Amino acid sequence: MATYAIGDLQGCHEAFQQLTELIGFNVTKDKLWLVGDIVNRGTGSLPLLRFIMKLGDSAVLVLGNHDLHLLLVAEGFAQQRSGDTLQEILEAPDRKTLLSWLRQQRLFYAEDEYALVHAGLLPSWHIAQAAELAQEVETVLRGEKYHELLLRMYGDEPNCWSDNLEGYDRLRVIINAMTRLRICTPDGRMEFSYKGQPRTIPSGYLPWFEAPQRASSSATVVFGHWSALGLQVRDNILALDTGCLWGGQLTAIRLEDRRVFQVPCARRSVAASQR
């Protein structure tokens, strides 16, 4: 039995098939940990969703910003953006089943010494706290009032955490950190516009995982979202977005021995500004 964590798929179904063949994935014995952004920008979002849904307990998925964007578009709370490739899902006969399944997925997952999240964690959040905060969002997203959460989800404010936050401001900060975060100030103020490489980060900010005395450093956090960061295999982080959508690679890492597996990807004809 092995557990393979895999980076952002973004509808790259063909590369995903090649990678699972490369690692010899056995659905009856192995597990896949998927860092989110299953859908959008690539051409195979629909078959990917269908396949991963059928994996059942053999796959652990945390939601990414593109997955949440699909839910918003499906409810009519957002428009498709330039480069989006969601229409096939929206017109699928099993649309309702797929979207309902997607809403049931996690925002954060922790097991043994590993934690799985799409983007990042704020410096003050320890692993148990992050799990509790994610569950607050998951409970609403899975419940009858999920429409209200989706309607109020977009926005960059508040841009930092406070235990005193309530209501949708509280949920928005949790969602933004776990699905959009790349850089923040040492005390956890998030900045969402920067998508470049670490060496050109604006003054006063740093990668979220380099914040001093980060409370989640006791675990190895597995994440994606930041394609310009590239593959990072360190003691307490595994960054797995290696830009498959942009002609890079699709990456898997076997958690038991940290062996890396990669397949090359064809560049998609989408606007780089829409990452």
Rank of each mutant, 00 (worst) to 15 (best):
Q17S: 05
H118R: 03
G36C: 09
Q274R: 14
T3R: 07
L61A: 01
R259G: 05
Q232E: 10
F77W: 08
D257C: 06
T200V: 14
P158Y: 00
R180H: 01
Q197F: 06
L240Q: 02
G120T: 10
K145Q: 15
C12V: 05
P186W: 03
R95F: 00
L49C: 11
Q104Y: 12
G42Q: 00
L250A: 03
P202K: 08
T43Q: 15
L19Q: 06
R267E: 12
G24P: 02
S269L: 10
A59K: 10
P93Y: 03
A177T: 08
T185V: 02
P212E: 02
D169R: 04
P47D: 07
H69W: 03
L72V: 13
E91P: 10
F77M: 14
C265D: 13
R234C: 14
L19C: 09
Y154W: 14
L250I: 01
R106I: 11
I38T: 12
Y114F: 15
Q79F: 06
S100D: 15
V117F: 03
D8V: 13
D94Y: 14
N65G: 14
L22W: 13
C184T: 08
F25G: 11
H66I: 10
G44S: 02
R50L: 15
Q104G: 10
R214C: 11
E75Y: 15
Q87E: 11
L255I: 00
E148G: 09
N159C: 12
A92N: 01
N65P: 13
F16W: 12
E138T: 07
A74H: 10
L250Y: 01
N176T: 07
L71F: 01
F77G: 11
Q232A: 12
K29P: 05
H66Q: 06
K145S: 14
L165C: 11
L121S: 01
T179L: 12
A59Y: 08
G243E: 00
K195T: 11
L171V: 05
E88Q: 08
R234E: 14
M190I: 02
R258T: 13
F223M: 13
P123A: 01
G11I: 07
P207K: 04
E21T: 09
D8P: 04
V222H: 04
M153D: 05
